[in-house]
Simulated assay, not measured.
Amino acid sequence: MDHMGMPDASGSRELLPALAEHPGHLFWRAAARVNVALSEALPPTVDVHAYAALLALAGGAERSQQAIAESISISRTTMVKVAASLSDQGLVTRVRNPNDRRSYALARTPEGAAAARRWRRHIEDLEDAITAGFTLEEREDLSRMLVRVAGPELAPDTPAPLLDSLGFLITRVHFRLHREFAEILEPIGIEPRHVGCLTALDASGPIPQAQLARILGVSGASVVQMVDDLERRGLVERRRLATDRRTQVLHLLPAATDVAGEARRLSGTVLDDRLGPLSAAERKRLTGYLVRFVTAP
């Protein structure tokens, strides 16, 4: 589960009703929860990317780093670090690439196979932790829908255990949505994270920065950066309370109305395309599952 483009989450379970209606925000928050769970649930000896790479080398496969990266949906930069770590630990060995004798491929060692079996228990415990409160039928239903939504992003040879991993699938869908949202919003000068910020302020009215951070589930530092961006764009203004000069309250400026409306329209086209494989009933179930995933204690 590559961390590129992932939100900086504080672990807040608060979810504003206006944001609960937006699958883009829900995937952003769900991916954040997966990241938090990764850091809290996995022991230091378990690297989720290394585990995925070892899965891609099962059955005696010899594969290039690029092929492995594509199979498990991580960046080349991350794959280079993973390969070096696995090699240093003796879990993979470098062999001549059968498709290009001038380069090398990776092969799993017996120690690597043992590590994959050992780490799998921790990964399964992580999956159980992030889906506590879901029945087996609900987990399978959510997994099937995510596979269909993530389909264009998944390599044909994605290891089966990853296709069964809700954490992996959620982060894949989020990564694709984030990239497409960023591209379509660029002409109006805002980023995907700003849309949730504008939506929250429109729904809640003027609020302090700390409250906005809780609503969005991000750190205080992250919300300061977002508000700085929106202030420069002329969409938000900080005003000190007359009764408490130490507290700054955030106010939407008139220009925010048109920008937020256009952002929602553009984002909607991305969602309609990305969630196109799902029926209306399935989209409703997916949204409900994501709300439960984000707000579960």
Rank of each mutant, 00 (worst) to 15 (best):
D47R: 04
I72W: 00
V149T: 07
A56W: 02
T78H: 13
E111R: 14
R274W: 02
A280H: 12
V249W: 05
K81Y: 11
R118G: 11
V46W: 01
Q66K: 15
S85L: 10
A113P: 02
D202Y: 07
G261C: 05
T269V: 12
R239P: 05
A296L: 12
A50H: 01
R283C: 08
G59V: 09
P206F: 07
R265K: 14
R274Y: 01
Y104S: 13
P98H: 09
I123N: 00
V259C: 06
V218L: 12
P43T: 11
S10C: 12
P159T: 07
L55I: 07
Y289A: 06
R238L: 05
V36E: 11
I68H: 00
R96P: 02
A20C: 12
V46K: 01
P23V: 05
G112V: 02
R265P: 07
R120H: 15
T78I: 10
P156W: 03
D47M: 05
L26Y: 01
E183A: 15
G189R: 14
D2Y: 06
F181P: 02
G151M: 11
Q209C: 08
R283T: 08
D244A: 13
A84F: 12
G261T: 08
I130R: 03
E140H: 09
A61P: 01
V294D: 01
